[in-house]
Design a protein around this nucleic acid. Structure first.
Lengths: 232, 232
DNA sequence: CGACCATTTGATATGGATCAAGCGATGTGG
DNA sequence: CCACATCGCTTGATCCATATCAAATGGTCG
């Protein structure tokens, strides 16, 4: 990723510069926009790479708008999507000094960049910030563990769990409906299935009236309890 | 787990009581035994429960001797082993206030107990400690992510990766040989396979001279590069 | 020695993958 | 503004890796 091309703001400087206790929640949970006061923001078009696997992890990112996928590709081309990130979500936080997964924009996406060095500096100065950072990382552990639990389930269970999760995370007006930002291939690679199996499973869920598919991306959750029952 | 039955030591008291900078590495990487200076130690026999899923997470644990498995059981009985923990490894560190996975001793096991509240207190006082805690949690994220990558591979690839990992982590005298502490069922539930598939795959790896099986638990890595090549 | 438990091996079934086509929506150039 | 190319998705037919069901073998301990 070329940082030079970004519209840079005073961001990282402010982050590491002030001495006041810093509330991490402004990065983590504040509505998109507030965080913009302290970080360069950058835009990516559909399918653009935000960073590659193995690149130096100098920044962490907060989604301001759009959707992001992280993924890893095995030698033979199999791709595993690690997670999807929606507005307000933080991604790119790594243990090592390089990114273990690559990141791409699924739709046109705007992200806030936060210097990793600034985060580290602040954490070593501000205990409350450090605690929040630890919490965020801990939640990431939980999410990845949930992903492991997902991958041992049947196709029906995986797809049902995926739909419920997305319905929870994507806040549209009506809460019986989800507009999925990602393609079937992304879903398949997240769930460890093929695109055909995902498609067939959706059709099948439709046939038992658990969902409806007005368009391929728009999904109506007709019967959440049926979907929930499909979980181990 | 009933703490009352443990041989208690001054441990947690000391941990939270002193004001000196505390080196987390003594908990994390020091040889088993050193850590014992500050924590209750407790012993568990083969298959004994250390804590159950959903129990309050008041302690975190360091393996002094033996081996531990963490796991979760789905409604229908399918079991997923989260990870195996060997001497020196830390487990039971949670985001929430309850354990997301249960923990059991695989062999007779001795663990060091560390009060979570003491860890939290120390982290808020000692920046270096907090940083190390974050590192440990970050490494956990990496481990779980690796587990996800494992679960999308073929049976051969999973078993090969498992053997290589165990050979790296279990330090016996000779490094061509591993003595596995866990049963086939544990391996199967870790890899998301059945016990029969694990067994057959081992037999198959033996037939191509990648490994030898002097006994069912003892595995000789005859040809590491073949095993490594079996990875995506 | 005998009972039990762990592991292996064998026979068969099956869920999801693969291979292959068709269909619908979207966008582009004429 | 239409015709056609492209892309994303669905559907169909078949295959295969792993699960399931079943039995035999081996190892351990009272």
């Amino acid at each position: 990723m070329l940082i030079q091309t970004a519209e840079r703001m005073s961001a990282a400087g402010q982050l590491s510069g002030h001495g006041l206790p810093f509330d991490l929640s402004s990065i983590l949970v504040a509505p998109a926009g507030i965080g913009e006061l302290m970080g360069a923001s950058m835009s990516f078009t559909r399918n653009a790479e935000i960073y590659g696997e193995g690149e130096p992890a100098d920044y962490l990112y907060k989604v301001l708008s759009g959707t992001v996928r992280t993924y890893k590709v095995l030698k033979d081309g199999r791709r595993q999507v690690g997670d999807f990130y929606l507005p307000g979500d933080l991604f790119g936080l790594e243990t090592g000094d390089v990114h273990a997964f690559a990141a791409e924009a699924i739709t046109n996406t705007k992200v806030l960049l936060i210097r990793r060095s600034a985060v580290a500096a602040l954490a070593s100065r501000d205990t409350a910030f450090a605690r929040q950072l630890l919490m965020v990382t801990g939640r990431e552990v939980d999410r990845v563990r949930d992903h492991v639990m997902l991958l041992i389930k049947t196709a029906q269970e995986r797809v049902a769990a995926f739909l419920l999760e997305m319905a929870d995370r994507i806040h549209t007006g009506k809460d019986r409906e989800v507009e999925l930002p990602m393609r079937r291939q992304d879903i398949a690679d997240y769930l460890g299935l093929t695109i055909e199996t995902v498609s067939r499973t959706l059709t099948q869920l439709e046939s038992i009236d658990a969902i409806a598919l007005p368009t391929s991306r728009r999904i109506v959750l007709r019967n959440r309890s049926v979907l929930r029952r499909l979980n181990g």
